[in-house]
Design a protein around this nucleic acid. Sequence first.
DNA 1: ATGAAAGCGCTAACAA
DNA 2: TTGTTAGCGCTTTCAT
Lengths: 337, 337
Amino acid sequence: MSTSRPTIRDVARLAGVSHQTVSRVINGSEDVFPETRATVEAAIAEMGYRPNAIARSMARGQTHTLACISPNLTDYTFASVIEGAEVEARQHDYFILSSSASDPEAFRALVDELVGHRRVDGLIVINPYSDERFEYIPKDFPLVFVGASAHEKNVCSVSLDDEKVAYEATQHLITLGHTKIALVTGPMEEDCSRDRTDGYRRALQEAGIAFEESMVIEGDWSATSGQSALLSLIEQGRVPSAVFAQNDRMAMGVLRAARDANIKVPSQLAVIGVDDMPLSSYFDPPLTTMQQDMPRIGQEATRMLLEIIKKKNPTVHDMKLSAQLIVRRSTSEKGGD
Amino acid sequence: MSTSRPTIRDVARLAGVSHQTVSRVINGSEDVFPETRATVEAAIAEMGYRPNAIARSMARGQTHTLACISPNLTDYTFASVIEGAEVEARQHDYFILSSSASDPEAFRALVDELVGHRRVDGLIVINPYSDERFEYIPKDFPLVFVGASAHEKNVCSVSLDDEKVAYEATQHLITLGHTKIALVTGPMEEDCSRDRTDGYRRALQEAGIAFEESMVIEGDWSATSGQSALLSLIEQGRVPSAVFAQNDRMAMGVLRAARDANIKVPSQLAVIGVDDMPLSSYFDPPLTTMQQDMPRIGQEATRMLLEIIKKKNPTVHDMKLSAQLIVRRSTSEKGGD
DNA sequence: ATGAAAGCGCTAACAA
DNA sequence: TTGTTAGCGCTTTCAT
């Protein structure tokens, strides 16, 4: 017994055909006599032959692998996008190689390895907040952005319609009669935070409520930052009647700060977030939020990327998805869980 | 300009050397005249040459890629392991291809693609609860299990020392004076759940507390299952003074059920979980838990796998990590956040 | 220190 | 329908 795996030629020898015929069989070519095919398949089964993916990639010039780069792999939103992407990719016989790049330097190195060395056929970048990231990616390499659309550059993207989502969230609070609505944002250097802030302002404006700079606190997406946001408002004596936190984690921090300050939610303070993270219905009280479909985003991104790779220019260039308002008890006593 | 990327030969031509010399340069061989090296490096820079990873894999017979299969990619514990694995892998110039397989069939297909087709050099399987999974993995293929040790089979593993962790968690409750301690388990088909149950029993036994079958409720790791676990105890009129939930999500469900039933935590009911998931300090009240270092587990698994691949038989065969007790207010009024 | 030749396992182009 | 001949871009002998 040879120690190494059988190749296409070993199979060919056993089946008494040329290695090319074996290739045809494993690739499902029509131009093979049923008998020949049977012989070859028998040989394949007998030897336990499996095609070597690397050799295939080598010959075909493509890896059938996509890369997914995100700031980290553990954040629920990122992980969900990746999972969505992975499922869609598998459906098309592609694999996803996901890596995290927390800083631009790591990002640069990653792009060099993955794209520069042609380890993957396409790239999905999650949260490409910092535009310098563009520089590293070769023009004309199949690329899709997730979480922010790509300004002037010619890059496809899939993201939440942040402005609209924020508008709707704010509107929900306004509908409940609130006029003193505070906003806790993500880092303002991220498009996403700015867009959500725009939506908040538009809703206020349409309702004839004056926008007040002091009611806007910049956070960093963490629960802690949400907590200190409400705290600082309290300390300044500018306690709002409602808070729109740009994500659920910060909303959770707000809930916590309210609890600590003995402010009743929702009677004294209504709170709404964005995401609908796994346990938001288990918060105390359960959190009203704008539910976004992250796996769907990953799925659409993959679909787009695959279209680009296959040279069919993608139908949509910048895809914006909506979120759905889930009313729970953090804004309404009658809300669900 | 040619449309395709420069190869090692193009560089060689420009530098006036053989392609082999270029190969030596990019591989950092010593046996190259400094001058020659400089010429070649200049040519590389000028042409923007980058080695093709696939061709390398082809020639070397290895992909420099590892696979990580887990039930899903979004669960915080899995994602953390994967992230830890990814970081360690990158350190050694390996990539991680992570895929989810929710059922045995998907797992089988995945193993065939990844291992059968030699798309990766090694495999990390997270939560290999179902032993049938073994069958699909070729004997002698580099493999490490995470989350459960590999019974009789000759496979390396990294996992939490479940028995010990559960013992310590239970002991914490006992130390606080509790004797009516309920247990909410994960699915009993998983080794992990059984081991944690063993630890619970050992702690009770050592403290001279009788084990009662009726105080053990099987959950499925979800918050919902934790909630209904406490609910069912309440309905049966067997309200415990403390609950050990085998993970934080279920503990959160227990907290929720307690809140709904107007049971004060921790004065009337102490609750402890396992994991220390991101927001457990934001629960109401903040959750006491056994903190486990998931990234570390992923890191160690990768390290082991790499050792196996490099044929150095790994130092440790089955690695068991401890968890650290984090006391918060769900078990003690004096607990931290 | 450098080069020439062979081959990794497969697909593609052409011929028969 | 099948086989033959060339690569894909690199590394690995083995010469020189």
